[in-house]
């Protein structure tokens, strides 16, 4: 094997990864551009709002309530080691609003919505429905991608907000029912401890994760290969990419909001 083989391999992989990054970035810019320019498709936007937002509420709510409850139990047990059981309301609130709420909702959206978008658009591509759209003078970016990305940008921050509240409610229920906390004191501590910055960071993360989840679903769907295997690969790839990018974006946004 040549001495240059390994650096060459690394170089090719790096260039390929950068090329993909560039294509995804251009795709995302194209999606935003199509959202802003007419024609608009209200029916498609309405359906996307329903599918991405309203129909995701049950899974988001269940995830959040169990996570909030478990978080309360863990903080209580951990805090007991150094007589800090009283911080449960504050840590549940900050943990849910700053981190767990946005990340878990983001990952749930990646699992539920990204996969669904990728599979639907990939199937449309395989069955020539996207070509049919073009021949019917309808731009697929405008008709398929724009409404989904717009709906995710609107609904995922709202879902994160709902998830935060339900997660805190889960912690509250466990703390009051099982751990002997005073209900009024718990709520007062929660409200007093949270800052505006916590809530803003949560909603901004929600918007960023919604953008990532919807763009990855649309990108993989629009670029899927042929046949059932192509649809399967697009679906799997979209969820993997969305999940990793959501976690990476969470790290970056946490640094932006809280590193000072």
């Amino acid at each position: 094997m040549s001495v240059l083989a390994i650096p060459g391999w690394i170089g090719r992989r790096t260039l390929a990864a950068l090329a993909v990054f560039g294509r995804v970035a251009l795709f995302a810019l194209g999606a935003v551009s199509h959202i802003l320019r007419p024609p608009y498709y209200p029916r498609e936007i309405g359906l996307a709002l329903l599918n991405i937002g309203w129909l995701s509420l049950p899974v988001v709510g269940l995830t959040a309530i169990f996570t909030g409850g478990a978080l309360a139990l863990q903080i209580y047990a951990g805090g007991a080691r150094f007589n800090a059981e009283a911080v449960v309301p504050q840590i549940v609130a900050i943990g849910m609003v700053r981190e767990l709420g946005p990340v878990l909702v983001g990952l749930m959206i990646a699992a539920r919505v990204t996969s669904s978008i990728a599979a639907e658009i990939a199937t449309m591509k395989v069955t020539e429905q996207i070509d049919a759209l073009v021949t019917l003078s309808t731009h697929p970016m405008k008709y398929l991608v724009g409404p989904r990305v717009l709906a995710a940008l609107i609904t995922v921050p709202l879902l994160v907000g709902v998830g935060d509240v339900i997660g805190i409610a889960g912690g509250y229920a466990v703390s009051v029912q099982n751990l002997g906390f005073n209900a009024a004191a718990y709520l007062t501590n929660t409200v007093n401890f949270l800052e505006l910055r916590d809530i803003v960071s949560s909603l901004v993360k929600g918007a960023a994760f919604g953008m990532i989840a919807s763009v990855m679903g649309c990108y993989y769907g629009m670029n899927s290969g042929r046949g059932a295997q192509g649809v399967g690969r697009a679906t799997k790839g979209s969820v993997e990419a969305a999940a990793v990018l959501i976690l990476a974006a969470n790290f970056v946004l946490t640094g932006v909001f809280f590193s000072v």
């Binding site: 359906l47 069955t127 020539e128 429905q129 070509d131 049919a132 021949t135 019917l136 003078s137 309808t138």
Partner: peptide, 30 residues
């Protein structure tokens, strides 16, 4: 494209729309 009509091999009908909206797709927008 408004000058063209096309019949695709597999039909390429839009699954989510009823038949009449498929047929009238071009007449409902643009």
């Amino acid at each position: 494209l408004a000058r063209f009509g096309m019949l695709f091999q597999g039909g390429a009908l839009f699954d989510s729309l009823p038949v009449w909206q498929n047929v009238a797709f071009r007449l409902l927008r643009g």
